[in-house]
Design a binder for these strands. Structure first.
Lengths: 243, 243
DNA sequence: TGTACATCAGTGAACGCGCGTTCACTGATGTAC
DNA sequence: TGTACATCAGTGAACGCGCGTTCACTGATGTAC
């Protein structure tokens, strides 16, 4: 239908276009990328990841993202080509940098493995606190059986984070810095649980606290508490009696 | 259209029906509830909760549940009237009993608050291990902003579990059974994290372990490990030096 | 400098599809007489 | 005992709706000459 009109429109300018095409080795004719579009793209990505973390990826319609970012649904396809590609983009431009930030202490280890582990825990928790959408997205989508993010995040974790963490734990055990009677794998799992779950569940327990009219701990309180727990939990059971 | 046929069909038997209706004070005429339908209903509920835990509630179509339980989508409406009511039924018949089981140690506390806490942790983790759909459903739906389960589960937790747990922790602190320098609220949060998250994330870390060709800890290993961590983490920091 | 126009970012309206739900209907079961 | 039929559990096909996606199109921007 309208395809004919578009073709006509293009044909009308073929001669001039050919002439213009001859004079453009370094710089194509036409308008270069405009000014405010980067802001717009970022706004869409921010809205998308917030909604995904809140409702789940599969349960969030593109129209909701569009409405949240005050653009048309067609724009999302103009920028990202498809819903799947939008999710991929989110992984590359939001999740991957997040993982990289959390991983920095592991890439420049301190002399003491235990201190490195502790620094990782602290860095990771500050990173989680600074990006509230991340723990919730992790807690939800990593669990999804066919989740689009899951395989990729699983790969990033198993490839980068988890071997390094396991090695640090084992090294700390060998150095006698932490108790030796626990499985390094399970210690790592406990650390991730202590770091991620409280942030992911924050809206729930903050709601419970408010309902009970109790003071709500801040993110900083939570980080301090978890580090204190880390300090004592892995202490070697010495001569003193337990329980 | 067909409504007319149905009306005719009913009209044809009005006389007999009126006669029958007169002779039924205690027991209505007609066929009482059949034999195998309870199994079918349970099968639908089992399928539904498994799929909800796997994909998320909002992302699971009724047709997928019907297919999984080998029934027609229309049957789900015949049994549960609507999608929302199916979710409510699941809460009442699957989630509530689960919460009740986990709460039993809290209702019959031992003399020692610390021992009661430990028993709760153990009971809760065994309960989680026995119902693999539960930790995943919790980890996912409790986090959902507008989740249908969230408010109700939040209410059950804030009404029953969380005050009792907080009181136990405070009592154990007062009795000198555990360290006093940590916020009871944050201790409770850490315990729930340690109990729930590893089970919810089990498919992920089991996948990572398999990929790295490492032996995978069993549920029982995880429970033992977490209880050992509980024992040492809350120990009072005595005279001996830390770190 | 002026003007013609290629190219850009972005849109409104419509598409087919799968969703939850509804509907008239069926064969089996059990009751009444 | 036989028979008429009310009531049951369960179904196939279709409903309207909201989804992701596509399409022809527009006005603004910038370039070529």
């Amino acid at each position: 239908m309208g395809k004919e009109q578009a073709k006509t429109r293009r044909t009308r300018s073929v001669v001039k276009a050919a002439k213009a095409a001859k004079s453009v080795p370094p710089r194509k004719p036409g308008r270069p990328s405009a000014a405010g579009n980067i802001d717009l793209r970022e706004r869409v990505l921010d809205t998308a990841i917030a909604l995904f973390a809140e409702r789940g990826i599969a349960a969030t319609p593109l129209r909701a993202i569009a409405q949240g970012a005050r653009v048309t649904p067609a724009l999302l396809h103009y920028y990202f080509r498809s819903r799947d590609r939008l999710v991929e983009t989110l992984l590359a431009e939001r999740v991957a940098p997040f993982v990289a930030t959390s991983a920095t202490p592991l890439l420049k280890p301190l002399p003491s493995p235990r201190a490195t582990l502790r620094l990782f825990l602290e860095t990771h928790m500050r990173n989680l606190a600074a990006h509230p959408w991340m723990p919730r997205l992790m807690a939800r989508e990593v669990l999804s059986e066919g989740g689009s993010l899951r395989e990729q995040m699983q790969m990033q974790f198993s490839a980068v984070l988890s071997p390094k963490i396991l090695m640090l734990i084992a090294a700390a055990q060998r150095a006698g810095e932490i108790r030796r009677d626990l499985d390094p794998m399970l210690i790592g799992l406990s650390l991730i649980s202590l770091a991620v779950f409280p942030f992911a569940a924050a809206p729930v327990w903050r709601g419970v606290m408010k309902h009970a009219q109790l003071p709500t701990p801040s993110d900083e309180d939570l980080i301090r508490h978890t580090l204190a727990l880390f300090d004592s939990a892995l202490e070697k059971p010495d001569a003193k009696s337990k329980r």
